[in-house]
Design a protein around this nucleic acid. Structure first.
Lengths: 147, 147
DNA sequence: ATATTAAAAGATAATAATTATCATTCATAA
DNA sequence: TTATGAATGATAATTATTATCTTTTAATAT
């Protein structure tokens, strides 16, 4: 996990550098994205902010996530059921492990991925630029509950 | 690529075995899924069938894809832009290599994936059930064109 | 072959998520 | 401090998918 303060500064700086205004709404959104605890959804980010910032509009959350995504400072994870989750702490492609029961998302550490990338490049003669790797399963907490 | 005729029979058999009726609509949908040329979308499947089967309803396509998915005979691929594409020819999780220019999709063969699955299970204490792995890049054809 | 019946289809309404619109407010810089 | 374009908030429009409900039909028994 990257340092949230560092990530926060980076996101705000990118906004400034690209000529965008730094509003209280953007600060609040960047704040949450910089941690991205539990890989929040748009709705979740909206609810979090609304507690201390009752005038926040859902449209503003959507708009700014699109903007921050365009600046390359948040990773969007779309799932087959149509839901989207966000990671502004590690905004570059990385593997996820997702519990299909409680929707928890972890970031496993995988040494072998770089090797696999090379393997694929050789086999297919592609120049590989990016990737998406998710493992789906049941976490240990949910497994206990079932017992 | 699996034999489309074989895949077609398998899908129809699964429908029968699970006590579902075999309708002309289901035959038409299974027919297309058994090939899954170009990994079609719901809309695309609907349009293909409508040509020779003008009464086909979009709802029927959705309903039956959900059903065939539940029978494990079609793989759903959701993409970050929200679009869903389907593969009923190889209905089990497998890696894709996608050209971001011409949208070509290849199925690379990767020995190391099973090993990676085990690695993840150990590290996260999850019971891994499924996965999704896509590599994005530029294919050799598109690379030549740019030169 | 026919009748029976539960399931499936077709048409469309409802829903949910996202994006667009537009009047108002505000961050920035002269 | 003020001017100005950009951003926000509220809500309408859009889009993809799912639900509803009436009609039709595949499968089974007669």
């Amino acid at each position: 996990m990257a340092d949230p303060k560092q990530r926060f500064e980076t996101i705000i700086q990118k906004l400034r550098d690209s000529g965008h205004k730094v509003t209280p709404q953007r600060l609040a959104i960047a704040e949450i994205l910089s941690k991205s605890e539990g890989h929040p959804s748009v709705e979740n980010i909206y609810e979090q902010i609304k507690k201390n910032f009752p005038t926040m509009s859902l449209a503003t959350v959507y708009r700014n996530i699109i903007l921050i995504k365009a600046l390359g400072e948040v990773l969007e994870l779309g799932f087959p059921d149509g839901s989207n989750r966000y990671d502004g702490n590690k905004p570059y492609p990385h593997p996820h492990v997702i519990c299909i029961k409680c929707k928890k998302i972890l970031d496993p550490h995988l040494d072998s991925l770089d090797e696999m990338k090379k393997e694929v490049a050789v086999e297919t003669d592609f120049k590989i630029l990016s990737h998406r790797l998710d493992f789906f399963g049941i976490c240990s907490d949910c497994m206990k509950e079932n017992a």
